[in-house]
């Protein structure tokens, strides 16, 4: 992959707390859901950064923060050096030309009362400077062709397409403004197995042809493995491990990553009786009231006194080659296959 050195997207200490309030007339804040609680990473030009985690880990809020759809409580998101986190109005609108979103559900992410031509062409209506008026229709058709749809279908409505085709329409809309970064929030998880591969391949081809950078957020570790160059693992609003895909998948250092990877079913029954499985007990704690110190300690088999007192920062640790947030990191290959 063409991941050149310079960072196109820089995220620093990003925090989003949703206040929990009580009272109808006089609102009193009684706490906060710490959806995203101090996340930092770089996305390099042309690379795909996968973000994995289970529901409630904050990965969807992260997507909204990256897109400037939510205002962060603290921290910064810079795209090509320009801050999106605090931007407003025209400035925010200009930045949005560089970062776009592909959403999960192809059935709800397209307005059912707009034609495909209007949906894919809407970015040009919002950003008239991006394409001269007379040229828009041709560009819309070129975009449809680019994502593998029939350009003659501009006058059809979303319900006339299958799920996979709709996801292509969503991708075409995301590409219209020629952004350099695309945030994919669970882009294939709503699709049938045999259609997922088509869309994953399309995203990979678009990246090659257009030099795009992806933040690929998903709960499906196998899909992320396939498409990502680097992977970040999230747990309760924190990044617990971050590294190249081969490192995170092949040499996971954080116990949560190991448990997560070992839980993924492998489509191969050979040796299934011998496969190592770390089954976590219970459910993740509430993000409104996370445990002190390391957030994973309540379900961790390695937890010691220090884990409750000190929060382990995400950093390079002895004996490992990538960053992890554990006081007792230990590389342990739970998949054991390459």
């Amino acid at each position: 992959m063409a991941a050149t050195g310079d960072a196109i997207l820089e995220v620093r200490d990003l925090v989003k707390h949703f206040p929990l309030t009580q009272g109808v007339v006089v609102r009193k804040q009684i706490g906060a859901v710490r959806a995203v609680d101090g996340i930092s990473f770089d996305l390099r030009r042309g690379e795909t950064l996968g973000i994995v985690g289970e529901s409630g880990c904050g990965k969807s809020t992260l997507a909204k923060l990256l897109m400037g759809l939510e205002r962060p409580t603290r921290g910064s998101v810079r795209i090509k050096g320009r801050e999106i986190a605090g931007a407003k109005g025209g400035e925010l609108k200009r930045i949005r030309r560089n970062i776009q979103l592909v959403m999960q559900d192809p059935y709800t992410s397209l307005n059912p009362r707009m034609t495909v031509g209007d949906i894919v062409g809407e970015p040009y209506e919002i950003h008239p400077e991006a394409a001269p008026k007379g040229d828009r229709r041709r560009r819309v058709q070129a975009l449809l062709e680019l994502v593998g749809l029939d350009p003659d279908h501009v006058n059809r409505y979303p319900h006339q397409f299958s799920g996979g085709q709709r996801q292509r329409i969503g991708i075409a809309r995301g590409l219209a403004l020629q952004p350099e970064v695309i945030v994919c929030d669970e882009p294939v998880s709503a699709l049938d197995v045999s259609i997922q591969a088509q869309v994953v391949n399309l995203l990979a081809r678009l990246q090659r042809d257009l030099g795009l950078s992806y933040v690929f957020i998903a709960h499906d570790l196998s899909v992320v493995r396939h498409i990502a160059d680097r992977v970040g693992v999230m747990y309760l609003g924190k990044m617990v491990e971050l590294g190249r895909d081969a490192e995170v998948y092949g040499q996971p250092a954080h116990p949560y990553t190991q448990a997560l990877l070992s839980a993924v079913p492998v489509p191969d029954p050979e040796g299934r009786e011998r496969r190592e499985r770390i089954v976590l007990r219970g459910d993740p704690p509430s993000p409104a009231n996370p445990p002190s110190g390391c957030r994973f300690r309540t379900r961790c088999w390695k937890a010691q006194e220090v884990c409750a007192q000190q929060e382990p920062p995400l950093q390079l640790r002895p004996g490992t080659w990538h960053e992890s947030a554990c006081h007792f990191p230990q590389i342990h290959d739970v998949i054991r296959a390459f």
């Binding site: 591969a197 994953v200 196998s222 493995r225 498409i227 489509p267 998949i335 054991r336 296959a337």
Partner: peptide, 14 residues
């Protein structure tokens, strides 16, 4: 056509 966690493929056969 399915991606596998234990393998890094080049392109999926959709």
């Amino acid at each position: 056509s399915i991606p596998r966690i234990d393998r890094k493929g080049r392109e999926l056969h959709a």
